[in-house]
């Protein structure tokens, strides 16, 4: 940027202030330095560390070990088998429920109840579910009382235990996120469609859905990334050496049982790459849809 002649006499301080840099701007520095030092640096360090294996076999040894040992590479599939259905189910159920709840004036009680499992966290939900879903728990008992099943369901220490606990902690998150997007759409748009005789399904399909797609894509990504990082409930409610041996378990074992931090970093990087891939796919798909204002314009 070249300043014109009259300003040539201005000091460096004033020039910087013109571009928005002064004492106040510097207040952002401590936080930036903190994030660089405690978040970005460890990430780069971990990336480099993963290429410096403590075992022999060249710089890719950790990655070669991961992708040649079925006990390790199968964790990706095991995690996807949990995360993808949980995410899809959460998003598909969250949309109709959010569409309904937005019409209710007193949402506060429901949203407060739903924020409980998010706040309490997976460890507490896992402990509660061990009792609740166990063979003598209230869930099986109620179903038996209603004569829906004749013997208790086996819902803990297997795939379904982890699946259900993920739903309990992840669905409220997806729902509240979707609700904030749905309430951001101008209700006038839907009213206009109704005035022109659009049925409920048509209003949803041709008015609400196109406006919701960008928000839903974000909700899908955030939900998926959370579900993919499942850890405590996979250990406590699942079969951590069997079908719910998820990728974070493999990473934690490499770090704290084998003390091989290079391998643990490699697994963490692989975990990050898989998450990134799914997020990129979702964002590419989203770009195929309409993007525009969610509020009604005049005209």
């Amino acid at each position: 940027m070249t300043s014109s002649t009259p300003q040539d006499t201005t000091s460096l301080r004033q020039k910087l202030a013109l571009r928005g840099i002064d004492g106040v701007t510097l207040l952002v520095l401590p936080s930036v330095l903190f994030v660089l030092a405690i978040f970005i640096y460890p990430f780069i360090y971990g990336l480099l560390l993963s290429f410096a294996p403590i075992r022999e076999g060249g710089m890719f040894a950790n990655y070669i070990t991961f992708f040649s040992d079925p006990y390790l590479y199968n964790t990706i599939a095991a995690t996807l088998r949990l995360a993808v259905p949980v995410t899809l189910l959460s998003v598909f159920v969250a949309v109709p429920v959010a569409m309904r709840v937005r019409l209710v004036r007193r949402q506060r009680l429901l949203t407060t109840l739903l924020v409980l499992p998010i706040t309490l966290g997976t460890v507490l939900v896992a402990q509660g579910m061990l009792n609740y879903l166990g063979p003598q728990g209230w869930f099986s008992r109620s179903l038996m009382l209603l004569h829906i099943i004749s013997s208790p369901l086996k819902l803990t220490n297997n795939y379904w235990g982890v699946f259900l606990s993920l739903i309990i902690t992840v669905f409220p998150f997806t729902f509240l996120l979707t609700l904030s997007y749905v309430t951001g759409i101008d209700p006038g748009l839907e009213k206009a469609a109704a005035t022109h005789g659009a049925s409920a399904w048509q209003r949803f399909r041709h008015v609400m859905l196109p406006l919701l797609v960008p928000g839903l894509a974000i909700a899908f990504c955030l939900t998926f990334v959370q579900a993919f990082a499942v850890f405590p409930s996979a250990v406590l409610l699942g079969a951590p050496s069997g079908p719910t041996r998820v990728i974070s378990i493999a990473a934690a074992q490499a770090a704290f049982e084998q003390y091989d931090f290079t391998m643990a970093s490699a697994i963490a990087m692989i975990m990050g790459v898989v998450q990134l891939c799914i997020v990129l796919i979702v964002l590419v798909v989203r770009n195929l849809f309409y993007r525009g204002a969610t509020s009604g314009g005049k005209g």
């Binding site: 460890p42 971990g46 560390l49 770090a255 963490a268 975990m271 990050g272």
Partner: peptide, 14 residues
């Protein structure tokens, strides 16, 4: 956006 367990392991190493 990055889940804690993904950045937690390299962070713990450092």
């Amino acid at each position: 956006l990055v889940p804690p367990i993904t950045f937690g392991i390299p962070l713990a190493t450092v």
